[in-house]
Design a protein around this nucleic acid. Structure first.
Length: 437
DNA sequence: CCACAAATAAACAAAA
DNA sequence: TTTTTGTTTATTTGTG
């Protein structure tokens, strides 16, 4: 997959139509954007007024936002760095603002992206036609789309690798022995865990270190939806393929369309009825939420709650997450989406043991249970074992054990656990795993 | 203060 | 040999 990154022009690939799109493009050029949010909001309103059947405008608006957000078109201050300032070395920015606004309230080139490394990697890989990338290209993608890293301390690459290694969601693909890509191998998304990544993205944590959904500000005008931005990123396949609404889709719909899921995640959602303007609005609003709310926060005060009320659905909640010790913030705990989606995805998972649907359902149900009972710490699926050693059966056993453990936790056992005890447990568990290897 | 997730740092080995 | 890649452990940071 040649150059990792999509050329800047790539996004134009969709049929560019609709005056809104044009307007946004215009906006893009004109922006000195003190009132960017206003302008966007205006575009949005126009979108509602016009019967646009094409969603390309959404693409463009997304691109616009991304550009503004990450390339610093915004005339906002050369922002206080995202406390990449933590890193001693080469933090590009110098002025440490005492009261630094949350990420979604401030953007700029020097701003650390709101995405966790897991998400970044996920996006990179998903954006690759072949859905697999060597680390180098992952770096490239990230650099391309998040210039922040260009000037960030080099440690981020280490973090990327660390994430790849540690996070079960990522799987090394055995290189085509015939075709060497140089050092290392290709990385792909483990279909079994893709959902978690999606969930992570879905939650798009604007507060980088906060896996949970932040509480909505006290201000009534700021609706929680702003934290539910879909995985928008330049050239996102989600956008290209789904008109940008993928993750705005009500869970139920996803569930219902999941039969197609065997072909991959995104096509599943694509067939969604996109017609209702309100839906588009919601999508965009959600996408633009942070921008809209920031400028004149009254602008989006009228927006209805997002269609995917994941919050109520606990979609975000803790984990069946394959989150290993420190990796991903995908706290999907299963739920309907998982049940269906993952089940389907399993099909294309080359693992030998691909249990029949019923079993899978059962398993998913178990996962669901787990998600509700377990504490995230219990799930640490240290990607210890080499890829390929994972047998579904084994996982099921593990899950059984863990579920049981969770029950214990629920019963209060957990309260007695201090860190050391947990570590001990972990070690024990790993030993067990290794034994079963 | 604690638990937790994620980021970061670093040591180290293996591969190219 | 050097650089890159991959794994692992430990520590730090931010949040609830």
């Amino acid at each position: 997959m040649g150059p990792v990154v999509m050329p800047p022009g790539k996004k134009a690939e969709g049929p560019s139509s609709g005056s809104v799109a044009r307007g946004l493009s215009q906006l893009y050029q004109d922006t000195e954007a003190a009132d960017l949010s206003l302008a966007l909001s205006a575009s949005l309103s126009r979108a509602e007024d016009e019967e646009l059947t094409s969603l390309s405008w959404l693409h463009e608006s997304t691109d616009l936002l991304t550009s503004l957000g990450h390339s610093g078109l915004r005339s906002v201050s050369p922002l206080q760095d995202a406390n990449g300032g933590r890193e001693p070395s080469s933090s590009p920015s110098s002025s440490p603002e005492p009261s630094e606004p949350p990420y979604h309230l401030s953007t700029g080139p020097s701003r650390k992206p709101p995405y966790s490394f897991s998400c970044l990697i996920f996006m990179a890989i998903e954006d690759a036609p072949s859905k697999r990338l060597p680390v180098k290209d992952i770096y490239g993608w990230i650099l391309e789309h998040f210039p922040y890293f260009a000037s960030a301390p080099t440690g981020w690459k280490n973090s990327v690798r660390h994430n790849l290694s540690l996070n079960k969601c990522f799987k090394k693909v055995d290189k085509d022995r015939s075709q060497s890509i140089g050092k290392g191998s290709l990385w792909s998304i483990d279909p079994d865990y893709r959902h978690n990544l999606i969930q992570a993205l879905k939650k798009t944590p604007y507060h980088p270190y906060s896996p949970r959904l932040p509480k909505p500000p006290t201000s009534p005008s700021a609706s929680p939806q702003q934290y539910h931005s879909p995985p928008l990123w330049p050239g996102s396949p989600l956008f290209r393929k789904n008109g940008g609404v993928l993750l705005q889709v009500p869970q139920r719909v996803i569930q219902h369309s999941s039969r197609v899921a065997a072909q991959g995640l995104f096509p599943v959602i694509r067939p969604l009825p996109l017609s209702p303007v309100s839906k588009r609005t919601t999508a965009v609003r959600s996408a633009l939420g942070d921008y809209l709310t920031r400028g004149k926060n009254s602008l989006c005060s009228d927006s209805p709650p997002p269609s995917d009320d994941q919050q109520e659905d606990h979609t975000y909640s803790s984990s069946q997450s394959p989150t290993p010790k420190g990796s991903l913030s995908a706290h999907s705990h299963g739920q309907e989406v998982t049940v269906t989606e993952v089940k389907e995805e399993q099909k294309d998972f080359p693992l030998d043991a691909s249990p029949p649907p019923s079993q899978l359902l059962q398993r998913r149900r178990l996962l669901w249970t787990k998600g509700h009972l377990r504490t995230p710490g219990d799930t640490l699926p240290l990607k210890k074992r080499r890829a390929g050693n994972l047998l579904v059966k084994e996982e099921e056993d593990e899950e059984m054990k863990e579920a049981a453990g969770s029950l214990l936790h629920l019963a209060g056992v957990r309260t007695g656990l201090n860190k050391n005890a947990q570590r001990a447990c972990k070690v024990q568990k790993e030993l067990k795993e290794e034994a079963s290897d």
